[in-house]
Design a protein around this nucleic acid. Sequence first.
RNA 1: GCGCCCGUAGCUCAGCUGGAUAGAGCGUCAGACUCCGGAUCUGAAGGCCGCGCGUUCGAAUCGCGCCGGGCGCACCA
Length: 724
Amino acid sequence: MPLQEIRHAAARAISDALASAFDTDTGPVILEVPPGRHLGDLAWPGALPLAKVLRQSPRRIAETVVSAAAWPPEVARVEIAGPGFVNLFLDRGRLLAKLLVPGPEEAGAPRDKIVVEHTNINPNKAAHIGHLRNAVLGDILVRCLRHLGHPVEVQDYIDDTGVQVADVVAGVLYLPERDVASALGQEPASREELLDAFVSRLPQSTVPEPSTTDFDDLCWDLYPQVTARYESEPEFLGHRTEVLRAVEAGHGGLDLEESVFTLGRAASSGETYPQRAVARLAAAVAEGNMRCHLATMARLGIGYDLLPHESDILALGFWRRAFELLKEAGAIRKETAGKNAGCWVMSLASSPEFADMDDPDKILVRSNGTVTYTGKDIAYQLWKLGLLRDPSGTRHDFGYDIFAHWRQATPAAPVEYCGRSGRLLARTRPDPSRQIFGREYGNGRQVYNVIDVRQSYPQKVVREAVRVLGHPRAADRSIHFSYEMVALTPAAVRLIEARTGVSFGLDEEAMSKSYVEMSGRRGIGVKADEFLDVLSAQAEDAVRSRTAPDAASVNVRARARAIAVGALRYLMARQSRNRVLAFDFDEALAFEGDTGPYLQYSAVRAAKIFTKLAARRGEGMVESEEAASLQEAEIPDDLWGLVLECARRREIIGQAVDTLEFSLLAQHAHNLAQLFHKLYHVHPVLPEEDEALRRLRRAVFTVFVREMRSLLEELLGIPVPEEM
RNA sequence: GCGCCCGUAGCUCAGCUGGAUAGAGCGUCAGACUCCGGAUCUGAAGGCCGCGCGUUCGAAUCGCGCCGGGCGCACCA
């Protein structure tokens, strides 16, 4: 933040000087960071391109600017270098002192709410590492926005009426008993008994303990069996349709136990399954998986504010209203002929973005009258933006109730669901009269949808729908935060096959590519909880090998968990978002080099200096009173480099949010850690007898420790363990 | 076919709103403190920045055209 201010002030000084010295518009002034410390702390190369316009040598322009500019007090010295670069040298002591004084966070005007939707895992199987990329990126976005002072509402959308949930239900109800039994890990039994066994695996608490043998893992095993069946026996697809139809009709609040009983009885007597009971089972499957997903994300310190359910979007007629609005706006039409006959389609021909498409129409209502996902998503998006309204202007809204409360001990600690206090996690309800006192959901001024790049096209359609409904500005504020998928390296695939004894049957061509796409349908993937367990175990070994054997009391588990989360989150964050992340076990399990633990280690090590310092010299971190005495300090280049870098947080965050490129933030943190590690050996604090020198080092490391902790824990969500 | 993304060291990736010597990590090789933790640090080797043309005082960065790879263009989500 301080550097950003100085940058603005210096840029203004230059543009004022330009304005007074020359009579033409010279464009915006951009200051950059020069390539070497000897070239200053900030640089303006603008004299070079101006040379032609002003018909003067760039050097002369630079001289004119330098002598005319009223530099802010933070600028200590200005030099002109090379062909005409203007290099600014900052007042080092002054900036260091400033960084040590906790600055007043600028309050600013109250800001509008931002809605961020992320995670959104299909509630029909366990989360895999691809889902983690979504959740981690979404979570970091949320953390950054909040850091910048925005109120943010985090939504995890639950697609509880989709095909994938129906597939799992179809599996339990119709797959041969022996297949269901094998997924359950038990001996073959009657359908009735299997149904009981299946339901008994549902999570027993609001959010269960994370596990790799949980309900979502059971579904993970069952689901591929169903999809395989569809391929070998196409008639089996009829069961999917049947379940979907039941889900769409709703269960009307039927009791789960009763439903299971009815289903079991129907199975043993050979009757058809009663629709409402099927729907109830489907709801239980979705909810069971959702709870497991919350548990997985909790490990990573990721929590939410609201769980909007697709079933509620349908039940509350959100689509019906959106449909009316679209019809009124003339944005959709019913096809009477051609391949889309009988469907309601949205024409995209008039928008330039879609103009070149072969078929610029997108189906929103199928010929059988059901709504496509894109249709529902339009309704949901309108609600998120507060634009789903009656003719009278009243906002259409969900019913709500409290799903859980949660808290975190520190910003990056695991989320704990417990008790009746803490942050509130709400879920939507089909009864709009149910509201939570003092809470309003949706109605965001800006909306981020964190969804992988493969859904760019439907996301564009949603945005276009908002636009043609007369809300071009809102459409611009509907942002698709897209990122590339996580895939597996062939080596990773082979390893999973070897470990599980299951062959995915991939051909030679697929295995010769640089990566293999994960597929829930085929069961190809690395489960999130499983991977976190492996990481934790690995970290635990590492911690034990480094801890003195007599220190038995230390909480090795907690440290290992912090390291595992650090490694994972950094892995997900460091790569730029539009590159496929090819997951490789060796690389992902590395704790050295460009990894999360490297960053954590720098913070732990720096903090350790201060605990030793307190014990041996009775000195602590440099606080505001002592900071003033550093104003005149001579700060050598290397220490200064670290200080200057620490001052850049605000502009890095700003850039990361603007570009949705959080690898910038990860790199920045890595850069800081690297600078620190280099200085560490050269500038010892503890043994230094010169008090002034010791104070300077203490001051620099104070800035570093605080900055690093903030970057890691608050922004990247990477916990800093006590020791590691 | 149309659209989007990627192509930089042996491998994995930074750098891209044009700027001053193209950077990390892994791997390879050679080293480091009786001293705040070696999950660290120092050094070496390793680059027609996919290819070509153009714009510019200046291009890894911008434009056009190729080549190679991926994804999307469903009455799936």
